[in-house]
Each structure stands twice: as C-alpha cells, then as structure tokens.
Design a protein around this nucleic acid. Structure first.
Lengths: 248, 248
DNA sequence: TAGAAAACTTAATCTATGTTAATTCTAATA
DNA sequence: TATTAGAATTAACATAGATTAAGTTTTCTA
C-alpha cells in the first residue's frame, strides 16, 4: 500500500490560515521545541485508523476527503461526518479510550500528523481556543444533522447534506461557483442520513427534476441556491469562522 | 418571577468532583483573583436564555434539570440535549454569535454563573482540558443520538433515550437502583426523537407490556437492563469520565 | 372544590419510505 | 478491447409511523 511519509511545512500549505492549522503554523515558527509535521500520502479508499484502535496522535487533513464512519451494534454503518481540508480528526482527550469510529479516504489525500497537540495547547492557550472552537463546530454540525434527520423529509435531508457540504467547502475556497466535488456513493449518502439507497436514488432524481440540485460523476451542482436555502432553513447560512483571542 | 440570586461555594456542592466543576473548585481555592460563583434559583418551566440572545456568561447546573431546545426554520421544536447536574451549558467561544438554542428548566433548578470561564482556562490548562472533555462528550452524545435517530425503530429510539439518561444520571449517583426521575412530557420525548406524540405513547405502552421499561408520574423504571442494553447496543455502556492531565 | 386547561390515550385511516428483485449502466482490470 | 464487479436505476409491494379525530384522565388555578 503506497503510504508515503514525508515532512511538510505549513508555510506552503493552502490551509495555513484555517482554524487549528493557523495556530500550529504560528507555534512551529516561533518554538523550536516542536518539530515540523510529518505527513502521509494516502490513496482513495484507504483507512487511516479503525474503530476499536487506540489513538496515538492527532491528524489534520491537508488535501482530499475523509469520511468518519461507525458500525453500530446492530451492524449498520453510520457516516458521522466528512473531514474536509483543514479539519482536525482523530483527536481525543483520553488516549486510553479506543476510537469509536473509523476514518477512510474517499479521494487520494494528504494527512498531517500531530504527535503532541495537547502539549502544544498547554503551552499556547491561543491554540487551545482554536481546538475548542473546532470541537464546538463539530458538535454543532452533529446537532444540525440530528435535527435534520429527526424532522426532515427525504428531500430535506438530502438538500441539507448537499448544502452543508457546499457551505463548508465554500468557506475554504474549494467550490467552483455552485459546483463542488462530491465523492460519495449513493450508499454513503444513505448511511449518512439513515435512508435506504433506493430512496436516496428516487429522491435525487426528483430533486433534479425540480431543478434544485444535480449530482453526476461525483460532481454536485446547486441549481437553485435560494430555494435550497429555504428548504434547509435559512438560519443555517451563517458560517462560523474562528477568530477569538481574549484568553487573559 | 422568583429568580433568587446568591453566592454559592463549591465546597458544599455535591457536584464538586465532577468534570469542569472539579477544575473550578480547585482554582477558586487557590486563586483569589477569581471570586466565588453566584447562583440563581429558578422554578420549573423557566427559561435561562432564549435562542437568538447573545451569550454573556457560562452556566453550570448545580441542581435540577434543564432542556436545550431549538426551533427550526420550519417551526418544529427539537430538543438538543438534557443538561444534568454538573454539566456546563451556554458556553461558546465566540460571544458575538447569538445562541442557536434556548435553555429551559424542567424542574426547580439551581444554576451557577461563571462570568470568565475562558480567562480561567487561559490561566489554568487543567481546566481547559476539562472544558474540552465536556465539549467532546457533548459531541459524542449528539452523534449517538444522530445514529440512533437515523437507524433506529421507535422502540429502539425510546429505549436509547431512556438508557442514555439513566447512564448519565447513574454516573453522578442520581439514580435509585434502576429508577430515575424523568421530567419529560411525551411531547418532549417526541421532540427529542423526531416522532409524533401519538407514536411515542403507543411505543411506551408496548415497551411496558414487553417488560422493558415503565414510565409513570415522571419516574422511569428500567425493568430489564440486560435486554435494553442489547436493544440499544452494548458498546454504549462504556461511560466516559474526565481524568486526563498530561498537558506538559 | 369546581371548572378549565393541559396531558395522555385509543382507534381508524393514510402516506412516505423501506424491501425485494430484476435490469441497466459504469468503471476497473486483464 | 472484452470481462466482470460494482454502482445506479426502476418497478411492485409491504409497513412503520404520521395524521386526524375523539375521547379520558390529570393537573392547575380561581
């Protein structure tokens, strides 16, 4: 398996102004005790770690797309969230607790490894803030999905998922107008939203007929952003960004 | 409205060994710059804050039961989570962002106010760890609900909710054998799980017939913990507790 | 304590979504 | 380029759970 290790520099990274990354870059520049990060090149459909394994380090996605999935006791697969470039994943305060989910690449990806994130945070409270902001964002996202899955119809669920990913990619400049990469199989969509694949398929076709969105060849077009936003709940449009500092 | 303010001391608080509370107690004991907390006595069915308001401080529930709810753009109410004694609520890194949810007491409650949590964290990384652990727990809880709501049948959903609350109360010693207080209306259960009230009712009766659990007069009995655990997915039994320290 | 409002219960009907099964399309590989 | 496995599609049928409507019981309050 072509897992390629090398040292990377945040200086050249297109994500170095985003969230936790920006905090880490600053620290690496000024504190020689922390070494530059190592990275791994991973092909598509490769696991970074498995549910049940013990965590040893924290990861940041530099490029690509990663899916966090969990298999329930009943054997059903649930997609927890998409990790997009700049996002942290695999972080846990308690290293003795095994991962409750797996991480798999959906595209060829580059992943940065952070061996000592908590130590860096202890030394630099600004970084701590960024980390807690990240956790907060992930919590909110999970809550959003919870609300949507609980109360939404099939078309609302799928529209929500599309819109959510569009927004998150857009905030990183990874969209092209109203088009984004969308490397999901219909089965992945089903496992994200708790629907059957068949119904995902039916609903996708209806959404395209109604000129709301279209999905072909792993490319998603939002055909009518206005209508979609209404369908999904406008309030969601507000995007978070991480710029807090007042820590004492 | 009988909102009663007073100064409280963590020393006498039954929650002072739990999560963020334990961190705060330690700091208040050793650092005179931070003053003892003020508390509010709130009767049942009172809002602590509303969706849309701006946050000014962080709260910790000392006693009682608080529900976090959100009204979606389509006007549906979703219960996000129960705040139990010892839990933080109303925390946000960004004070400029309005609350996306309301907080309401389900029982008479006592709430402690923390005006400067982030400042304390900046000074004491141990507290920061506890706060991030809290966020992590809340994220995991939301994910658990997400999975359950997405893939579970009505009886699985309700069993999960019951079991989840039982576990969380038990970890604080707030259960009596297999019985816990359960101050929900059936409508609240419906709004938590995305079901209709009628179906909640039907399902509760079936669960009692099948000797799994019974709910009367706001008291919930787990009649068959074994079966419930299986129904809900055993892996969930593992409880988190907060005891991490290695911050450099 | 009576009266009203809120919460709960039960039954009948309807619908969105799941299930099963078979067919076509697509992309990977030899 | 032919072969094959995986993914997407379509249709027929089944069902869990929503909705509507009409009680009953409990809780609040005057």
């Amino acid at each position: 398996m072509g897992m390629n290790n090398s040292v990377v520099f945040c200086k050249n990274c297109p994500r170095n102004h985003y969230g936790v990354c920006s905090g880490i870059e600053t620290i690496l520049n000024q504190d020689r005790e922390f070494h530059p990060l190592k990275s791994q090149n991973l092909p598509a459909k490769q696991y970074v770690f498995y549910q049940g394994e013990s965590p040893v380090k924290t990861y940041i996605l530099r490029q690509g797309w990663i899916l966090l999935t969990q298999v329930s006791a009943q054997g059903k697969r649930q997609v927890l969230r998409s990790v997009l470039p700049g996002d942290v994943f695999g972080f846990q305060t308690d290293l003795n607790k095994p991962f409750s989910y797996s991480a798999m690449t959906l595209q060829d990806s580059i992943v940065c490894c952070v061996p000592d994130l908590l130590q860096m945070c202890g030394r630099y409270p600004e970084l701590f803030i960024k980390l807690i902001w990240e956790e907060e964002s992930e919590k909110k996202l999970a809550e959003h999905y919870m609300v949507n899955i609980a109360h939404g119809s099939a078309r609302e669920k799928i529209s929500f998922m599309a819109f959510e990913l569009y927004q998150r990619l857009k905030s990183r400049g990874l969209n092209k107008a109203h088009v984004i990469p969308f490397p999901f199989k219909q089965e992945d969509i089903a496992d994200t939203l708790g629907m059957s694949v068949i119904h995902v398929n039916r609903t996708l076709h209806k959404l395209e007929q109604d000129n709301l969105l279209s999905l072909h060849k792993h490319e998603l077009k939002l055909l009518d952003c206005e209508k979609l936003a209404t369908l999904v709940g406008m309030d969601f449009l507000e995007l978070d960004s991480c710029e807090i500092s007042d820590v004492a």
